[in-house]
């Protein structure tokens, strides 16, 4: 088990290196660079920039160097923990990303917990009450949940809230707290706002997880060990919860591996629609403005979160399933 985790951890830098190459190629790929589009913006505004100044900027960001040198310079500063300077904002990227990163993670984790808290009981109910009315209702809701894109759900909710109740449900903080420093009151304010985007973000996953849970549990309910447990004289709900539910959840743990990363990157779209202050909108702007080091840093952070998500899932799987745990030993 420890060896298995160690193996994974050793793989981490290799993966990160590969990803950094991919990411760099992607942010470097658009024709031109930030300065050309910056100049175009300035020109359209009627002003211009002096050639000397332009050259100075180019040198500062190393844009005059060949691509591989640019990559190595980026790597060099990354290895020192320096994410570089944003071309557009002229501020260190780490400052720009900082708090937004934590909000991204918080939102994903919230969505994750909401998903599990809803999906597992719903799946258990559906499987143990197969073909009941509520089972059908849940099945229909699941299909619709899977079929509705996040951003559309966000739009519908925002529209209903605005048109019916005249409230705006955007943002993660109320206006008083957006710029405020962290305090207990600000955390409470965050908790009051985060659940709705979290639901929007998690609804598709909830629907999918409910379906998997239902199918898995239906498979397990007819296994001989359930008969054994029942023949012991355990009460029905104890039988179901201790044995088949446990075995039905095990494979779900492996879904965390793709679900958590999906939430991290999915939050990007929801954040854009609901104007949440996480890294999503920042990435979107950086990409369109060719603010390449900022975009690169954010993309690399997404990659890192994805790897971590998979790692968490692998470790959890080994914890809950002795068969996998022993295999590694």
């Amino acid at each position: 088990m420890l060896r298995f985790i160690a193996q994974r951890l050793l793989l981490l830098p290799v993966l990160l290196f590969l990803f950094s190459v991919v990411v760099f190629i992607l942010v470097e790929a658009p024709p031109g660079d930030f300065l050309t589009s910056y100049m175009a913006t300035l020109a359209s505004g009627g002003s211009s920039i002096e050639t000397e100044q332009l050259e100075a900027l180019k040198q500062q960001f190393g844009l005059d160097q060949p691509i591989h040198i640019q990559y190595l310079r980026w790597m060099e500063s990354l290895s020192k923990g320096d994410l570089g300077l944003s071309l557009e904002y002229q501020r260190p990227n780490i400052d720009l990303i900082g708090e937004r990163l934590w909000l991204t993670i918080a939102l994903a984790l919230f969505a994750f917990f909401i998903t599990w808290i809803i999906a597992i009981p719903a799946g258990i109910y559906s499987a143990t009450h197969q073909n009941s009315l509520l089972d059908y209702v849940l099945t229909v809701l699941n299909y619709i949940g899977v079929a509705t894109p996040n951003f559309l759900l966000a739009l519908i909710l925002m529209w209903v809230a605005y048109a019916q109740f005249n409230v705006s449900i955007t943002g993660l903080f109320s206006s008083d707290y957006i710029q405020a420093p962290w305090s207990v009151a600000r955390v409470i304010d965050l908790l009051q706002h985060i659940w709705l985007p979290a639901i929007v973000l998690g609804i598709g996953g909830t629907a999918r997880l409910t379906r998997i849970m239902r199918a898995n549990l239906l498979d397990e309910l007819h296994k001989p060990y359930v008969v054994t447990a029942r023949a012991k004289g355990l009460s029905e709900w104890k039988v179901v919860l201790k044995y088949p539910v446990r075995l039905a959840i095990n494979p779900l743990v492996s879904t965390i591996g793709w679900y958590l990363p999906q939430l991290f990157s999915g939050s990007l779209i929801v954040a854009t629609v609901m104007s949440l202050q996480n890294v999503g909108p920042l990435l979107l702007r950086a990409l369109t403005q060719q603010d390449m080091y900022l975009a690169g840093s954010i993309l690399l952070i997404y990659c890192f979160l994805t790897i971590i998500g998979t790692l968490i899932s692998d470790v959890l799987l080994a914890i809950v399933d002795p068969r996998i745990r022993m295999e590694g030993a």
Binding site: K223, P224, Y225, V227, T228, A229, R230, A231, K232, G233, L234, Y243, R246, L247, N250, V320, D321, P322, R323
Partner: peptide, 19 residues
């Protein structure tokens, strides 16, 4: 069930929970 009348099930392999 289990106390007065007990069952030795058919398949010993699948009759214990593996976890």
């Amino acid at each position: 069930r289990g106390a007065e009348i007990a069952l030795i099930p058919q398949e010993p392999m699948a009759s214990f929970s593996p976890v």
